[in-house]
Design a protein around this nucleic acid. Structure first.
Length: 878
RNA sequence: GGGCGCGUAGCUCAGCGGAAGAGCACUCGGUUUACACCCGAGCGGUCGCAGGUUCGAAUCCUGCCGCGCCCACCA
């Protein structure tokens, strides 16, 4: 049994982790080996995620990096758990966003899309998307995304276009898609209609002018912020019960500047309390007025074109709307028609979410989706639990939305997108053309417009799997398991996928779980944006700290549904963690850590071994729980804490003592080290795939962590005695260190000392470790106790005698004791207060009372110890 | 105008009914043979304010104050 300690093996790991050198190579190996390629014919249970397709109008930002880290973590874990995993990647043509980007590009050459023409323009967008799309996919490789590269899709590829056409036709035939003339949100810059959610409202300064219509007793004053629209007024509306105006209802008043007489109508919509209680009605340029017009059969007079330029004949013709507005007011003032002006006047103004141009409500013929039946199904699927939204708070928003939906305007006057599959023929004939239909012949023309980009992305969970064909992929991987995305596109995208998925797949939900993460902000909680200059590019982080550190930083901050603040320091901290992990493994390997020998039986292990193994077991359970609950911040925290604070700070130090013992003790320790690292690396792999892969393959010689098994809890009972002893040891060591620090001892300075304690003989087995951790030497013949330190542990008091050669800093020691005493006395007072309260004793649960009692006992013991110490301590250093 | 959420250590955030926590920052000490991207020891909080419920409240309720987000057709 007197084996020599295993000769320190030469570690195969370089001294430092250099992510830039190895990440790309590891990634390519994973892809080449087909780890990420899903098999639809497999017997394994499926786990599928469709990647929210990034827009091809830019590169991946930190928000993408976050979401990709989340999805990669989820899929890697499931793969290790033995699921057949499909993570399907792709990109989105992002109609208006991409068209705007390419138009901007063209503008740099002094050209507009009209200069190049539709066909050439679309060609150019395709070129753009090749470049940008490729760049995005490259960034995904860089991040380590374990996506299935054999299944990359694009919202405008052939298969998806086929799906778009198919569902359009089906909805059209079901009467759920229709064409109608209505007031829509029009962007005069993008020259297209927008849906309601593509309009952002902001409180802008405007001017509220009150204008007198008509004259004399029959005049009526209306207020407006958009004076130029009066050119298209076709009525004045008042509330039917408004006594002030009852006599005017049915009469006509003159609209100034136009010479037109319009009726005064009564309409419930008018709020008599607001302004003058009378409203000018412009059915062609205001959504409310349009409704009023409909109710009263008023004509809609269009006075402005799609660029926002006045078309009405007269002095204002050809003026831009913002030029015409003051001009109209000036003309009215000249005629003495302006009764009052309020300036500035804050009111809500709609802006194009893409280019920020002020939206112009405009009467226009567009295509619509009738959402009520679809939304009802979408609502039901979440209510009955087919789909679960995480965090649940956001489910409320989902319901608010789906339960109050207006119809969805889906046609866009753009060139980049899916052309609406409808043809117009002679005699106003209309034909919706399905994918298998022949386009009609002579004399027919296809609708010029394209579909809202969210129409095709709404099909993503099933169109990417081959729908409408009943493919093996669709059968195996639909419904998808999880959808992960930012809460900001809950309405834009998630709702649409729910509606279309349930409709196309006969009531089968597109996903079982929806996980909504927060938005990334800067270190002060401000939104990251280019204009603010506070954005951080994930590529910069990966360059500086590595992909693993970047991912870990993001996951570490990802509390469900809440925004997160980030700064470079955060990433540096994660990088430090990867370095720590690297060095710990390097140390273990250098000391013979191995997974080749099985763990020795428990009874052959030390308290420290059993303690760390039990903690590890708990960690496995904890990590699993957090994964199931999408608690990425918590699971990262748990792994960080175990690795750094428990394993590195304590176990590795204790292991050094055990290794030094040699023989079977050293061998056992090598096994424990190997085992703990093996498990920790597996658990960390979904978060930090590159470094864990490198370390694990070196440690175990295994093929790859990507296809390794996910750890399971052993189910064994925790060794409470070992845990108590190690916690006691930690406290003892910390107290001695604290004492040393107070005494001003340099960390390297060794001090002779004895550790005694009749209380717990067991703990004294740890004395070599305590000595090692506190730089305490064995006392020699000339040992003279110059200071004695009592440390209270749960099991009793341990006495530590240290030979400080008479150089005890009594002042520091008294100060410390006084402080400890104050803490203990406060504790005692608190406990006594509670225990002296009859109501507390009567009503509090027994275990709480017992806890307080033991706290009081401990506090009293502590106080006694401190008093005893103070008595034996000299008054000062003399 | 509705709805939701948040105000806890200098900063960013956990905790959400029974002894105030983490990361970063800060102070002190360190050539301790894994790691200075480190080690050790510290400092730092009447948990926004005011009431209430409770034996007990950062945690539940009410009202204020201050932020943020979402939705909405108020001229």
């Amino acid at each position: 049994m007197t084996e020599t300690p295993a000769a320190p093996q030469r570690s195969e790991l370089p001294p430092a982790w250099n992510p830039a050198e190895v990440e790309a190579g590891l990634y390519e190996r994973w892809v080449e080996r087909g780890y990420f390629t899903a098999d639809a014919t497999s017997d394994k249970p499926p786990f599928s995620i469709v990647l929210p397709p990034p827009n091809v109008n830019g590169s991946l930002h930190m928000g993408h990096a976050l979401n990709h880290s989340i999805m990669d973590a989820l899929t890697r874990r499931r793969r290790m758990q033995g699921y057949e995993v499909l993570w399907l990647p792709g990109t989105d043509h992002a109609g208006i966003a991409t068209q705007t980007a390419v138009e901007r590009d063209l503008a740099g050459e002094g050209k507009s899309r009209h200069d190049v023409g539709r066909e050439k323009f679309v060609e150019r967008v395709w070129e753009w998307r090749e470049e940008v799309g490729g760049r995005i996919l490259g960034q995904m490789r860089r991040l380590g995304d374990g996506v299935d590269w054999t299944r990359v899709r694009f919202t405008m590829d052939e298969g998806l276009s086929h799906a778009v056409q198919t569902i359009f036709k089906r909805l059209y035939d079901d009467g759920l898609i229709y064409r109608a003339e209505r007031i829509i949100n029009w962007c005069p810059r993008c020259q297209t209609a927008l849906s309601d959610i593509e309009v952002d409202h902001s409180e802008d300064d405007g001017e509220l002018v009150s204008i007198r219509y008509g004259s004399g007793d029959d005049s009526i004053v209306v207020a407006t912020t958009r004076a130029e629209t009066m050119l298209g007024d076709t009525a004045v509306a008042v509330h039917p019960e408004d006594e002030r105006y009852k006599h005017l209802i049915g009469t006509e008043v003159e609209v100034p500047l136009t010479g037109r007489y319009v009726p005064v109508v009564a309409d419930e919509h008018v709020d008599p309390e607001f302004g003058t209680g009378a409203v000018k009605v412009t059915p062609a340029h205001d959504p409310n007025d349009f409704e009023i017009g409909r109710r009263h059969d008023l004509p809609a007079l269009t006075v402005m074109d799609g660029r926002g330029v006045i078309t009405a004949h007269g002095p204002f013709q050809d003026m831009d709307r913002f030029e015409a507005r003051p001009a109209v007011v000036a003309a009215l003032r000249e005629q003495g028609r302006i009764v009052a002006e309020k300036r500035p006047y804050k009111h809500s103004v709609g802006h194009c979410s893409r280019c920020d141009t002020v939206i112009e409500p405009r009467l226009s013929m567009q295509w619509w989706v009738k959402v009520a039946p679809l939304a009802e199904a979408a609502s039901a699927a979440v209510r009955d639990g087919r789909t679960t939204i995480h965090p649940p708070e956001l489910a409320k928003r989902y319901f608010d939305w789906v339960d109050n939906l207006n119809d969805w305007c889906i046609s866009r006057q753009l060139w980049w997108g899916h052309r609406i599959p409808v043809w117009y023929g002679p005699n106003d004939k209309v034909m919706c053309v399905g994918p298998d239909d022949e386009p009609p012949g002579e004399g027919w023309v296809q609708d010029e417009d394209v579909l809202d980009t969210w129409f095709s992305s709404g099909l993503w969970p099933f169109s990417t799997l081959g729908w409408p064909t009943q493919t093996a992929d669709l059968a195996k991987f639909y419904p998808t398991s999880v959808l992960s995305t930012g809460y900001d596109i809950l309405f834009f995208w998630v709702v649409r996928m729910m509606m279309f998925g349930l409709y196309a797949m006969d009531g089968k939900q597109p996903f079982d779980h929806v996980f909504l993460h927060g938005l990334i902000r800067d270190q002060h909680g401000k939104k990251m944006s280019k204009s603010r200059g506070n954005g951080i590019d994930p590529i910069d982080w990966m360059d500086a700290y590595g992909a693993d550190a970047t991912r870990f930083t993001l996951l570490r901050s990802a509390n469900p549904g809440s925004d997160m603040a980030l700064a470079d320091e955060w990433a540096a901290g994660s990088r430090n963690f990867t370095t720590k992990l690297w060095n710990a493994t390097r140390f273990a390997l250098g000391n013979g850590a191995t997974v080749e020998r099985p763990l020795p039986p428990r009874e052959e292990l030390t308290d420290a071994d059993r303690w760390i193994l039990d903690l590890l077991d708990g960690l496995v359970t904890e990590v699993d729980g957090h994964f199931e609950a999408f608690q990425f911040a918590k699971l990262s925290e748990a792994l960080y804490h175990f690795t750094w604070d428990e394993f590195c700070d304590w176990y590795l130090e204790l292991a050094k003592v055990q290794l030094a013992e040699g023989g079977t003790r050293a061998k056992a320790t090598q096994s424990v080290l190997g085992h703990v690292l093996d498990v920790v690396l597996r658990l960390l792999h979904p978060l930090t795939p590159f470094i864990t892969e490198t370390l694990w393959t070196t440690l175990t010689g295994g093929e790859s962590l990507v296809v390794a098994d996910w750890p399971k809890p052993t189910g064994g009972a925790r060794d409470e005695v070992a845990a108590t002893r190690i916690e006691g040891l930690k406290k003892l060591v910390t107290e001695i260190r604290r004492f040393r620090s107070d005494q001003g001892l340099k960390p390297a300075q060794k001090v002779a000392g004895k550790v005694r304690g009749a209380c717990c003989v067991d703990l004294l087995d740890q004395v070599p470790a305590v000595r090692s951790l506190t730089r305490m030497t064995e006392p020699g013949d000339d040992f003279s106790v110059s200071v004695s330190l009592d440390v209270g542990l749960p099991a009793g008091t341990v006495k530590v005698e240290l030979d400080l050669s008479g150089a005890v800093d009594v002042v520091a020691e008294r100060k410390r004791l006084a402080k400890d005493l104050a803490v203990a006395e406060k504790e005692r007072a608190q406990c006594e207060g509670k225990l002296g309260n009859a109501a507390f004793l009567d009503k509090a649960p027994a275990e709480v009372v017992a806890k307080i009692q033991s706290r009081l006992t401990a506090a009293n013991a502590e106080i006694d110890r401190i008093h005893a110490r103070l008595e034996t301590l000299p008054q000062d250093n003399s």
